[in-house]
Write a protein that binds this DNA or RNA. Structure first.
Length: 818
RNA sequence: GCCCCGAUAGCCCAAUGGCAGAGGCAGAGGACUUAAAAUCCUCCAAGUGUGGGUUCGACCCCCACUCGGGGCACCA
């Protein structure tokens, strides 16, 4: 009869013991260990934890637990991103209080995390929906307001008709609402923005520091998103208009090739230029059509170019040519100046437009490609300038420099940069978020709520109609919205919008250091100690939004002198998603795997190890490909070894079987290396290998009593503590030790055991393997070459031939080239 | 259309430019058992997507392509 290992009993057994020991408490003032900050992205409290959480937290836990074993004082906190639409929508659906729904889910998730053996420091927990937290959102907003970084403006904004709220650019995916996939429309509203564009250059340039530390993919996505382009702004005089029109171009070198100008149809400039031209009605008709077309239609890049001639002319500053001005929807109102110079010969979009409208095409760069007039394909290759006056014969870079220099003398042009990135719209017309701490007074205008009155707390939701109506539900709460103006005392109204929840998550990593401080957002000394985050772990879904905003906030706080670093997350690991049968799990697809079911069947450890072992952490895990039953089997094998050991705890390992000891130390070394390079699947494989070797040593090798077997069993327990905490703890106890194995410490590796006695050298002729010989690891090139020449196989292979070259790489290889 | 990443055994995945296989899943055979489960042992398979190149030597570096995944997309 084999002993059975009852996973559920073991789980219940250890939880209260861990609660008592608190192995992962990080706030002890006298802690002499060096510090490390390991952070998992905090969850949104919608229902219980799911498979995706399980993977993310299993991976983060390996890292946190590893650094604890290596002797670090690891801060590994958790919290909840607990403001947001789902709570509000659920509340509307059930006619309940979003607060109650939110905090119930939090307590369910918290209990699940504890059972999942997450190594969180439970004394550092925050919820962004607590007034103690969002007070500091408001404080930060006001600090930014003081610096001019928070401002209000009227502009057409992305509007989700289903959520009945505005969306940030970042929350519109392919013209659809990120949350509900409704088609996003435009609406002109007066809204609050944060001036992230002021930081565009630094957000871009500081990524150099993150190179090699963050996934290349994320850096690339952020670069793309910021979308800096370098070019020039050029002034074009307009006939019959006092002020010139400025255009932005990345190709000022092709200025001589400009044959017309295009302004965005929906821009104020177009509306102004058309006045008094006699074509007002044509323009109005065209604009109507443009406005009717949704963003989705606009996204189709292959649709034919349309536009209307405005019956006006611009003057090309380099040659005085008269350029007809057109309005079209292929020029964007909110990029650059909303007006372009069209160079159809060398820009495909301009060429398409020119051909549609029968406008002239003038080639000014000789690229060796076919004439765009004939082919309809704009030539964009490198070449020399032609038909360009003083620029003739120059290459692109020189022509750009020269034309800017020439025009800048008369202030007609200057070098300029442009960004795809727009300012961050943070107003939301919803209830469950941070109230914007501004009071609107009929006489004083917008007045910040005095700091002493923070937080501006949300009113009670009970009895409130939270259904989306296009204006914030807060506006309807008379007792809340009506306040005296802090400046003049006259009746005034609170701003009834709430903040985008991405504001909450843009600085939460700072708050963990000081969750109990009511008087400051964060304790400066604590933040100086713990930050920046050494290791951040989370999904690639936040590659742009959350990470960019957090980087922005960090730089703002740095500029305010409130932080001493400019990048919040030193290293980033993006885990993949958990799929089922090749696609994302969903109820509608019918491929949902419930975490609770998997845990009930296989136990926490088996699920954790399955997640970690499934493949590289950044790859998606297809649950159809993993075998939690196999993981459970492996854990059983490991556990049984701890029961087989017969030597006493504390036995001198150095008297143990040398062969096994070498395997143990090599394994410990490899596991460390694999964990530190995020190859957790490889680390688990090494533990499996060690278990296999130890099994063999017990059954048919040095025997269960050998000290090396105990050394190995303890190494297995400690290694497993990173990924299978219950099994590891159980093993550790059976091996005669006191809990917790999480604090056992990573065994010191004996370097003298890492070198092999003998290594196998490969003997090749012309790169083909002829024989293998055992040699000493420190053999010299000369000796190895000598052995090769004396080898029978080699002699046979090279008999009669002339040796042209011998490559020797002691102690691994000799290659004889004939 | 542009950019990024990937492709190794039936499957998931390993392999500082130097023996293609560490580990697992699935499969086959055996031991134990009255039997089954569990457990243990043994076995099994690809020459690394395709075509070139560099090199004494390429899964690894370079070029072109195919397929898959992802990002951006009228940003001047």
């Amino acid at each position: 009869m084999h002993e059975a290992y009852d996973v559920h009993h073991v789980q219940e057994k250890w939880l209260p013991i861990w609660d008592a020991i608190e192995p992962f408490k990080s706030g002890r003032a006298d802690d002499p260990r060096p510090k490390k900050y390991v952070l998992d992205m905090f969850p949104y409290p919608s229902g219980d934890l799911h498979m995706g959480h399980a993977e993310a937290y299993a991976l983060g836990d390996v890292i946190a637990r590893y650094w604890v074993q290596k002797g670090f004082n690891v801060m590994h906190p958790i919290g909840w991103d607990s403001f947001g639409l789902p709570a509000e929508n659920a509340a509307i659906k059930r006619n309940a209080d979003p607060r109650a729904w939110t905090y119930e889910n939090i307590s369910v998730q918290k209990a699940s995390m504890r059972r999942f053996a997450c190594s969180f420091d439970w004394d550092r927990v925050l919820h962004t929906s607590d007034p103690e937290y969002y007070k500091w959102n408001q404080w930060l907003f006001l600090e930014m307001y003081k610096k001019g970084l928070a401002y209000r403006k009227d502009s057409p904004v992305n509007w989700c008709p289903n959520c009945q709220t505005v969306l940030a650019n970042e929350q519109v995916v392919a013209g659809l609402c990120e949350r509900c996939d409704s088609e996003v429309t435009k609406k002109k509203l007066n809204q609050w923005y944060l001036k992230i564009t002021d930081y565009a250059d630094r957000l871009l340039d500081d990524m150099e520091q993150l190179e090699g530390q963050w996934p290349e993919k994320v850096l690339m996505m952020q670069r793309n998103w910021i979308g800096r382009s370098i070019g020039a702004e050029v002034e074009f005089e307009i006939e019959g208009r006092a002020k010139p029109v400025v255009v932005y171009t990345t190709r000022p070198d092709t200025l001589h090739g400009a044959t017309f100008m295009v302004v965005a149809a929906d821009s104020e400039l177009a509306a102004e230029l058309v006045q008094g031209t006699g074509v007002e009605s044509d323009f109005a008709k065209y604009l109507e059509g443009v406005k009717a077309a949704s963003d989705i239609d606009r996204l189709a890049t292959d649709r034919p170019k349309t536009g209307v001639f405005l019956n006006r002319y611009a003057i090309n500053p380099v040659n005085g040519a008269k350029l007809p001005i057109w309005a079209s929807d292929y020029v964007l109102a909110d990029y650059g100046t909303g007006a372009i110079m069209a160079v159809p010969a060398h820009d495909q979009r301009d060429l398409d437009f020119a051909r549609a409208m029968k406008l002239p095409v003038s080639v000014v760069v000789e690229t060796g490609e076919e004439d765009p007039n004939a082919t309809g394909v704009a030539t964009t290759g490198e070449g020399v300038m032609i038909n360009s006056g003083s620029l003739n014969g120059l290459k692109k870079a020189d022509a750009i420099a020269k034309v800017i220099e020439e025009l800048s003398a008369s202030k007609k042009a200057k070098a300029a940069k442009n960004y795809r990135l727009r300012d961050w719209l943070i107003s939301r017309q919803r209830f469950w978020g941070t109230p914007i701490p501004i009071i609107h007074c009929p006489t004083c205008g917008e007045v910040p709520v005095p700091e002493s009155q923070l937080p501006v707390e949300l009113p009670d939701a009970v009895g409130l109609d939270l259904k989306p109506k296009g204006t914030s539900p807060l506006g309807a709460v008379e007792s809340w919205v009506n306040v005296p103006c802090p400046a003049c005392g006259a009746p005034a109204k609170r701003d009834a919008d709430t903040m985008d929840t991405f504001v909450d998550s843009s600085w939460y990593f700072l708050r963990y250091t000081s969750v109990n401080r009511g008087d400051v957002a964060y304790d400066r000394a604590e933040v100086d100690t713990w930050l920046p985050v050494d290791q951040y772990v989370g999904g690639v879904t936040h590659a742009i939004l959350h990470l960019l905003y957090s980087r922005f906030f960090t730089k703002v706080l740095f500029d305010m002198g409130k932080l001493n670093f400019t990048e919040p997350f030193t290293k980033l690991l993006n885990q993949g998603m958990v799929l089922m049968d090749g696609s994302a799990m969903s109820k509608s697809r019918g491929n949902l795997v419930r975490l609770s079911d998997e845990l009930a069947t296989h136990g926490v450890d088996a699920i954790r190890i399955s997640m970690v072992f499934a493949g590289p952490p950044e790859d998606d895990v297809d649950w159809a490909d993993v075998s939690p039953a196999g993981s459970a089997k492996f854990l059983n094998r490991a556990w049984r070894i701890s029961g087989d050991v017969t030597s006493k705890a504390g036995v001198d390992f150095t008297t143990g079987d040398l062969a096994l000891r070498k395997i143990v130390h090599k394994a410990l070394h490899d596991i460390s290396f694999a964990v530190e390079s995020f190859r957790f699947n490889v680390a688990v494989a090494r533990v499996m290998e060690l278990v296999n070797h130890t099994r063999k040593a017990i059954d048919s090798g040095c025997g269960a009593a050998d000290p090396a077997v105990r050394e190995s069993a303890e190494a297995i327990a400690i290694s497993l503590s990173l990924v299978a905490p219950y099994t590891a703890e159980e093993m550790w106890e059976r091996l005669g030790h006191k809990p917790s194995v999480a604090l056992a410490g990573w065994p010191a590796i004996d370097q003298s055991l890492l070198g092999a006695d003998n290594v196998t050298a490969i003997l090749q002729v012309n790169g083909k393997i002829k024989d293998r010989i055992e040699v000493a690891p420190n053999i010299s090139d000369a000796d190895l070459e000598k052995l090769a020449m004396e080898n029978a196989e080699i002699k046979a292979a090279i008999a009669g031939a002339t040796i042209s070259k011998v490559i020797t790489r002691a102690p691994k290889l000799v290659n004889i080239v004939l």
